[in-house]
């Protein structure tokens, strides 16, 4: 049904992108707002040069509610891709498919294909637990464990057996905090509870906690929505640094944030992936009426 599913084996190629979307966009400009008509067609380019996670034809149902329809998207190595869209558009749902957090919701059902490094993450032998160690997640509200700062960061390495001894664990905790830009603020109080930190610090602690497990992909679900602008800026800087090592998928409500941190942007609308493209392109020249409406503020 989607354009990507038909030519999946083919390597990501540019020509298509130039030919088709323009036509699509033109048609759509004539019938603005008729969302149902674009079922399953994503304009722009869902592919990328160096795909690491590939979602194909993903559908998610919560009971009878069809939350996500036929979404296909590639996520490249070491890139930041932002998922934007109005509330309830399914971007968070899609994000949670990528590390199978939806498994914890009983009524949720996922169909389609999602691969990580070429392997289907929904295959039977895949342990979702092992998957989540490779695809880490940072949540909307900072949620440190009610334990010490040290234990917050050390928890992941401990359950995955990443450190052979205490010194190594200390080292992991230290570097993780350092990479999360938190070390200077907390190095003297690692024993204090993580909940004693400010909101922005807590969120950086959560990032440190996530990178301590040494994941390959980091999913961020509106990581700054509960933070003030200064804390937000720090986290955005941090993402810039982190994308040198990790693929980052960020869900955000803020187009400015998407524009600042991401290389590519995917626009979701009512469970559909409407448009995917390079950030500059999507903000300067959106090819879909809905995308344009959204980034110009006509859709809240």
């Amino acid at each position: 049904m989607t354009e990507t599913s038909t030519d999946k084996p083919a390597p990501p190629a540019a020509p298509e992108r130039q030919a088709e979307p323009v036509v699509e966009a033109a048609v759509l400009h004539e019938v603005p707002g008729r969302v149902t008509e674009l079922g399953g067609v994503t304009v722009g380019n869902t592919k990328c040069e160096n795909p690491f996670m590939v979602a194909e034809d993903v559908n998610v149902y919560y009971g009878d509610n069809h939350a996500i329809q036929n979404v296909s998207l590639e996520i490249g190595k070491k890139e930041v891709i932002a998922l934007i869209g109005p509330s309830g558009c399914g971007k968070s749902t899609f994000l949670r498919c990528l590390n199978r957090m939806n498994d914890t919701i009983e009524t949720a059902r996922v169909t389609g294909n999602i691969t990580l490094d070429g392997k289907d993450i929904y295959r039977k032998e895949q342990d979702p637990v092992a998957l989540r160690a490779r695809v880490g997640m940072v949540f909307q509200k900072p949620n440190p464990f009610p334990k010490s700062i040290y234990d917050n960061v050390a928890y992941g390495p401990r359950i995955h057996g990443l450190a052979a001894d205490r010194a190594e664990l200390d080292n992991i905790v230290h570097t993780s905090l350092e990479r999360a830009g938190l070390i200077n603020e907390v190095k003297d109080r690692l024993d204090e509870p993580g909940t004693s930190l400010s909101g922005g610090q807590q969120q950086r602690l959560c990032i440190a906690r996530t990178i301590a497990v040494n994941p390959e992909v980091i999913l961020m679900d509106e990581p700054c929505s509960a933070l003030d602008p200064i804390a937000t800026a720090r986290i955005e800087d941090l993402m810039d640094e982190l994308c040198e090592d990790y693929a980052i998928v960020i869900v955000t409500h803020s187009m400015q944030q998407a524009a600042r941190v991401s290389r590519r942007v995917a626009y979701f609308h009512l469970g559909l992936l409407v448009e995917v493209d390079e950030t500059d392109r999507i903000f300067t020249n959106p090819q879909h009426k809905l995308t344009e409406d959204y980034i110009t503020g006509r859709i809240g």
Binding site: I159, H160, G161, L162, A164, D165
Partner: peptide, 12 residues
């Protein structure tokens, strides 16, 4: 030995 714990599926 201890240093290679991550080669195991689960914690020792």
């Amino acid at each position: 030995g201890h240093g290679h714990g991550s080669a195991l599926h689960s914690l020792p």
